[in-house]
Simulated scan of single mutants.
Amino acid sequence: MPHAEPAVVFDRVVKRYEREGRAFNAVDHADLSVEPGEIFGLLGPNGAGKTTSIEIIAGLRRPTSGTVRVLGLDPAAERDRLRRVLAIQPQHAALFEQQTVAELLRVWASFYPDPEHPDHVITRLGLDEARNVRVAKLSGGQRQRLLVATALISRPKLLVLDEPSTGLDPAARQELWNAIRSRIADGGTVLLSTHSMEEAATLCDRVAILHKGRVVACGTPAELVRRHAPERRLIFTVDSGRDLDALRRHPKVSDLVENRRNGAIEISLSTGDADALLGLVTAQLGGRDIQVKEAGLEGVFLRLTGFSFDAADDTTEEA
């Protein structure tokens, strides 16, 4: 059997903009390959290039340079053909505000030759109680799930989701994740951008980590952690007057971050031997509120970029 063609390919893709006389790359020589039948995540802070990448995939923007193929098509030149097999849920979209959820999805279903039944999509996304509620009256979380529903109803070969779990409570988020997995079970491929480490680690088969438009790592969440951040994170608080020199110089300490708040210092560090540091932290530094965590994808991002994930929000161009 021949190997199936990738669902999405980026080959050295660049998208360049000018702002106030200064040029910058929102997507910077990105290489990506999304395989059929997988849930692939674009993980990055605000402005990392996730939304721009999705707009290129959907044919809404042309790359400045590089090659893009989506389901074997050039998304910019063959957008009409691509629309038959791709569905996208943006972060924000205009909807018919005076229709009910059921009415809106029936209209959406009428646009496609073989749609999912609206009732099935409503149930799958936990919108049964909102079935007869007008769109204008929906909560933020319900509206977010309705946007996903409008993308799911066409049974797309490629489902593209931009920050789909924004504003959802844990129960609604789990329903959304189950709906995404169901698209895979039905033979589709899913590409999603996310700002959530938990979502990427729990839902995605593979993840590309983006920072300032560049793909800094790609692989399964477990592979990325094993390769780039096998250490654990030690998090604790000390009084602001404590001498931290011994901790900063300790051979078992790396990626130490200090945040000064309300007369105290919150410290987060990576270590391959948390047990060896606990004596120093408790006896010499008077550490409190001590937590030991696996580094996870947050640790991968910190190791590869030099920034914590939250701090990168403030240092990256909006894209």
Rank of each mutant, 00 (worst) to 15 (best):
D80L: 08
I209V: 14
V207F: 08
L302E: 00
A208C: 10
V13D: 11
R248I: 13
V148M: 03
A87H: 14
S139G: 15
T305R: 03
D273K: 03
A87R: 11
D255V: 05
V148F: 09
H3S: 14
L42F: 09
E298R: 11
A208H: 00
R181W: 02
G21M: 05
D275N: 04
T315V: 13
N259T: 15
D186S: 09
G286P: 14
L192H: 01
T100R: 03
Q89V: 08
L168W: 04
G272F: 03
L277H: 04
I153W: 04
G286H: 15
L159A: 07
G44F: 05
L161D: 01
D114N: 15
E18F: 05
G167N: 10
M1N: 11
D11V: 07
I39T: 05
L203S: 06
I180Q: 06
E78V: 00
T220K: 04
D119Q: 12
I56W: 08
Q174S: 08
E163F: 11
D31N: 07
K252P: 05
G41D: 01
K50G: 08
R62W: 08
W177P: 05
R303F: 06
G187C: 00
S65T: 02
A48S: 11
R249I: 09
H195R: 09
E199I: 08
L203A: 03
I153V: 12
H117W: 10
T220S: 01
G188T: 05
P45D: 00
E294Q: 13
A87G: 14
R83W: 02
A179M: 03
R183M: 05
N25E: 02
L43I: 05
R183W: 00
R84M: 03
D273E: 00
T52Q: 03
R134E: 09
R227L: 06
E129F: 12
R19D: 14
L176K: 07
A26W: 07
A30K: 04
T166P: 02
E258Y: 10
A87E: 13
P2N: 13
I290W: 04
A217T: 04
L302F: 01
K15A: 11
R260D: 08
R181D: 03
R260F: 09
Q98K: 07
L82S: 04
G141K: 06
D162E: 07
I153H: 01
I235M: 07
I39V: 10
I57A: 08
G296R: 07
T202Q: 00
L73G: 02
K15D: 12
T166V: 09
E199W: 09
R61D: 03
G219Y: 00
R303K: 15
I235D: 01
S182V: 05
T64R: 02
R143N: 11
P115W: 09
S139A: 14
A7S: 15
L71W: 02
